[in-house]
Each structure stands twice: as C-alpha cells, then as structure tokens.
Design a protein around this nucleic acid. Sequence first.
DNA 1: AAGAAGATTCGCT
DNA 2: GCGAATCTTCTTA
Length: 173
Amino acid sequence: MLVHDAPAGRLAARIVETEAYGPGDRSSHAFAGKTSRNASMFLARGCAYVYFIYGTSYCLNVASERAGVGAAVLIRAAEPLSGLAEMRRKRGALPERDLLRGPGRLCAAFGLDRGHDGLDLCAPGALWLAASPAPPRALGASVRIGLSTEAHRVMRFYEAGSAHLSGPRRLGS
DNA sequence: AAGAAGATTCGCT
DNA sequence: GCGAATCTTCTTA
C-alpha cells in the first residue's frame, strides 16, 4: 500500500502492478551508471526514485538493492482506497478504475514529482509504504510494458483480474 | 552541437 | 489507432 499525507489530506492506494529493473538489465535507467537523474536508484532498498519522462509524466519507483547498486521497482498501477476526491481534483472526474491506472497517472493523482525523489519510504515522513489491507488474490506475470530493449523479460507482476491494471487487456485480465 | 529515443498520457480520428 | 507534448540522456559529428 502507498500512502501520502498530502496538504489536502491523506491519499492511500493498494499497489496492484509493478515492474522490476535489476542490475545488468539493459533497459534499466541505471545500466549505464549513475547520473543526476537516476542517482536514487543507487540508494538503499525502500528509497523513492521519481523521474520525469517524455516531457509530460512522472514515474514512481522504489530502490530495490543495497546502497551502491542501481536497481528499482516501478509502481505502475494501484487501487485507490482513500482520498479519491482529492485524486479527482488533481486528475479530473474520472471513474475509479482510471484514477491510478498507469505510472504517470498514479504520480499525478498522488501529487508526486522530483521533490519526492530520494525519500526513504520506510521512514517517518509524508510518503511511505505500508502493509496492504488485503493480499493479492492471484498473482500474474508478463513482459514489461513500453520497452524495446530487453522486451522479452518477464518482469511485470500484477494482481490477476484487477480492474486497475495499466496496459493492454491481454497482459492482465 | 545537434538529433534521436525513451519504463507515458491525452486528444482526435 | 496515431501524433503531439517536450525533459533527460545518449549517440554521432
């Protein structure tokens, strides 16, 4: 579960879709080494890596290796639990299933940007990860979405059948 | 120094 | 389904 104590109130959502970008993966932002953009991928496990992509969207990741090793898990989609009114105020009057469906949409609804890059999501603060109120019913796995390199790797994991998944239908439901 | 590609989304056809 | 928006990084000259 992802929780954000935003100025307007508490936002919470149950994460239903992720993608892994580990060491040695040519599609990982960390593959070519540390830069000012991807530095947070080299922090300890549990730290946030937020990047800006295509000049339009932010994406939230969680660093997933020991400090010094570049790796992260991309949070691609979540099921809104609380703060839906505030999410709609940020994103528009969308149906619940579209509020957090996609990494850029999720960041927009949660109000996340580069200012949240590097935060420790397992430490006290405004943004953190908590235990899910309900474990996933059934896990699915597939290739990752939107990649042209390392596209064959099965590194996307999701709650099978969830109405809140991103990407093509065939990759989840 | 300039150009292309990229872990995306939105609006229009 | 297709193209635009437009930041960061990597490639090529």
